[in-house]
Design a protein around this nucleic acid. Structure first.
Length: 505
RNA sequence: GGUGGGUUCGUAUAACGGCUAGUACUCAGGAUUUUCAUUCCUGCAAUAGGAGUUCGAUUCUCCUACCCACUACCA
């Protein structure tokens, strides 16, 4: 059996979308499950859409998720340009492979599978407008190519002259007429398309001497010995072209699997950056600052653990067939199979995403979480003892979704409340309660003794305790009174109570 | 418009052609708790519509509807 080799081939036109990360993840899982290789290749054949920093962003995102490629990066973690034992197919950036594609395109022309086209952008634009005027759609194909300027319609001498004199011609694939292309997709099964509905795609552009996606993709997948192409559903319409290209070259083609799309939480359509802005969740793995200065939030900066992010992404479109939902990366590798990937698009649910992080937060050790809490405390100007922070972390970890929630949950252990929630104060800090609370506080020296005291007096426990809580935390919610008093001490508790009396009564 | 793909509770999904269509998130209610949270329990809620095949269809076939993608010298 052929060695499993898959690739993730993003285009550096901006930050990697979480859907892209999922595609990378599924490729990674499939490779590892089958003892194969996961390759990174950058498809930057569109010189106009290149965005500085996007390639580094992609690599850093994969690194954060823990799904590093086996092939494609050099020792410094940059995209490999030089061949090595680890990177036998370098370079992995298509712009650096520029020189290899033309010969393949010419090979197709020589074999009668492609031709030179000399139509200018304006001419094609005009043809499109005319067709649209008649309520039709113009496609460059067997039906129209006979009336256009290309090496199929022009005399050989003129073609030769144009190839020399002009620099704006292209090589187009000669899409066969009325051929039923029969395809097999691992996820979708049997698919048939009649080639007459397809157009003569541009394969190579003389203007910048670069291939288009279709040619570069097929050539590189072949050269890099890719066994399985796992990509987004948006590529399904070009699968017949890719089948035909493999056939024209006489190459064995890889297996294909087209992944369902990631959809927006409400409404219809693909998940986009706007949805995240609107509903308050990230759509990118890491924070991204665009060249124009615009910032997009990232899962990492929002406080997600990479394991949680990977886990939630894995469950969007795939399921293990069991009721298990929490998976480590290693467990995902073991459980993964393309057969269990669904066909329909998956709407992203931000609530469920948070739930995953909460679950991971609870699984973390107190020591680890406390270490993450320390810098948050320092930001608030608090330098606390490590053991004390660990004790506090133990108390609050069950209540938080993100480490950044810790402060909101337990700030009053470090500083006294300056304001009181009006509604809570009105409800609990009433004079009859205050008298009982003051006495209980003053007459005892511990929270446990205080509870005994209140019970002994047969006072209403809830009212008295809430009265104290309001003075200590400023609201009627928070940690247990005993826990709070243990951390702030009796003196501070009394001081806070007196301050509340001054301000509220 | 054309081509292709898709359709189970609000969301993610499960269910050899065969139990009362299961689970998780969200939401609602309850129990526990001095409060809040946790935890536990309960509840709400789905096979898009119509034919056909079959003893029997969420599952197979066809039609309709709706949704999505693609339809560039972008990927």
């Amino acid at each position: 059996m052929k060695r499993v080799r898959v690739r993730f081939a993003p285009s550096p036109t901006g930050p990697l979308h979480m859907g892209g990360v999922r595609t990378a993840l599924y490729n990674y899982l499939f490779a590892k499950k089958n003892g194969g290789d996961f390759i990174l290749r950058i498809e930057d054949t569109d010189s106009h859409r290149f965005v500085p920093g996007a390639e580094e962003y992609i690599i850093e995102s994969l690194r954060w998720c823990g799904i590093m490629p086996d092939e494609g990066l050099d020792a410094d973690g940059r995209l490999a340009s030089e061949k090595s034992e680890r990177n036998p197919h370098a370079p992995y950036r298509q712009s650096e492979r520029k020189s290899i594609y033309r010969a393949y395109a010419e090979q197709l022309v020589a074999g009668g599978f492609a031709y030179y086209a000399f139509d200018t952008a304006e001419e094609l634009e005009k043809a499109r407008a005319e067709a649209e005027g008649k309520g039709e759609t113009f496609i460059y194909s067997a039906a129209t190519r006979g009336a256009l300027r290309n090496s199929l319609t022009l005399p050989a001498e003129e073609v030769a002259a144009l190839l020399k004199s002009r620099t704006d011609w292209t090589i187009r694939f000669k899409m066969p007429q009325d051929r039923v292309v029969v395809m097999e997709d691992i996820i979708r099964g049997h698919i048939e398309v009649n080639s007459s509905t397809l157009d003569d795609k541009v394969l190579w552009k003389r203007a910048d001497e670069l291939p288009t996606y279709h040619l570069a993709n097929i050539v590189d997948d072949h050269l890099m010995e890719i066994s399985h192409v796992i990509r987004g559903e948006e590529w399904l319409p070009s699968l017949p072209l890719h089948y035909l290209l493999y056939e024209a070259f006489g190459w064995e083609r890889p297996e294909f699997a087209h992944l369902p799309l990631l959809l927006k939480p409400v409404g219809n359509g693909k998940l986009s950056k706007r949805d995240g802005d609107k509903m308050g969740f990230p759509v990118f793995p890491l924070k991204w600052v665009a060249p124009d200065g615009a910032e997009s939030r990232g899962y990492r900066e929002d406080g997600y653990f990479p394991e949680a992010f990977v886990n939630l992404l894995a469950m969007l479109g795939w399921n293990p067939g069991t009721e298990q939902e929490i998976f480590s990366l290693q467990e995902l590798v073991e459980a993964f199979s393309l057969e269990k990937v669904g066909k329909s698009g998956a709407k992203f649910n931000p609530d469920k995403a948070k739930w995953f992080n909460k679950e991971y937060l609870r699984m973390k050790g107190t020591e680890e979480l406390a270490a993450l809490f320390m810098p948050v405390l320092e930001e608030h100007g608090i330098s606390a003892d490590k053991h004390k922070v660990e004790e506090i972390t133990e108390l609050i970890k069950e209540r938080a979704t993100f480490v950044k929630d810790f402060w909101d949950i337990a700030w009053y252990l470090f500083e006294a409340p300056q304001t009181y929630v009006e509604k809570d104060a009105a409800k609990f800090f009433k004079s009859e309660n205050v008298a009982m609370a003051r006495e209980a506080l003053e007459e005892t020296d511990s929270a446990i003794a205080m509870e005994e005291y209140i019970r002994g007096k047969e006072w209403p426990m809830g009212k008295v305790m809430n009265c104290i809580r309001l003075a200590l935390t400023g609201s009627s919610s928070g940690l247990g009174i005993a826990d709070i008093m243990r951390f702030i001490g009796r003196e501070e508790a009394l001081a806070r109570f007196r301050r509340a009396e001054e301000r509220l009564l």
